[in-house]
Amino acid sequence: MSQVPVRLRGLAKSYGLKPVLRSVELEIAPGGCVVIVGDNGCGKSTLLRTIAGLSRPSGGEALLFGEEAWRLAGPMRQRVGVLSHQSFLYPNLTARENLEFYGRLYGVPKVGAAAGRWLERMGLAAVSRARVGTFSRGMEQRLALARAMLAAPEVLVLDEPFSALDGEGTTLAVALIKEAVAQRTAVAMSTHGRPPLSGFEFKTLRLVAGVLKPAALDEAGREAVTGARTGLAGSVDGGTVGGFAQRPEA
């Protein structure tokens, strides 16, 4: 596919008169991974929602595969996996029923077998017949990750994917993201602090006052190097980053 999976051009988003995003520029090529960090309320979730097509930009463009994300046609949406703050899971359906339902929506072949494999992979096989309403937040997050990745998307938008996960869950999530990147999935994700990623190249950007800036974080998640450039964040292609601090290993 020649189209860049994720491209933001002069993206702006305001709620009323309050600007949240200002002229954000970003490209993520197949196999690229961008981690967006920032303080609470800085607009990370708004940015990811806009990339996912859940929110319409106030200005500029958020493009997925060259089309505006907020009005992406149905079949194209099959190529996008989204993990939000909300799990999108039905509390009164079981873990298996939830995965099978979303599998049908996304046209996953042999959906029963696929759901079974994902439940096994996420360590939820033993509770596959339990209703999601009885799950802990961490279990729900594992299932939500499986839901987002079920259809092997070409673009993954992950808002705080490590939220509520224990050590084992975090290791599992990192492995899944690493696998996705290896399969040339473009990944855009957010974390509060230093992302627990390792073993592959990714780019960290800090969202400050609605603008993406390059960021390298120390072990505590603080900014070690402050990028001076604003607005343009360059492009990411399988970890080949032009002009910005990058960390091959976290």
């Binding site: 859940l54 194209m76 949406r77 703050h85 799990s87 999108f88």
Partner: peptide, 15 residues
């Protein structure tokens, strides 16, 4: 509305 399921449907391939 629970767990944002409507959003999950809106961004699914189903028109």
């Amino acid at each position: 509305g629970e767990n944002g399921c409507l959003r999950g449907l809106v961004i699914s391939p189903v028109d």
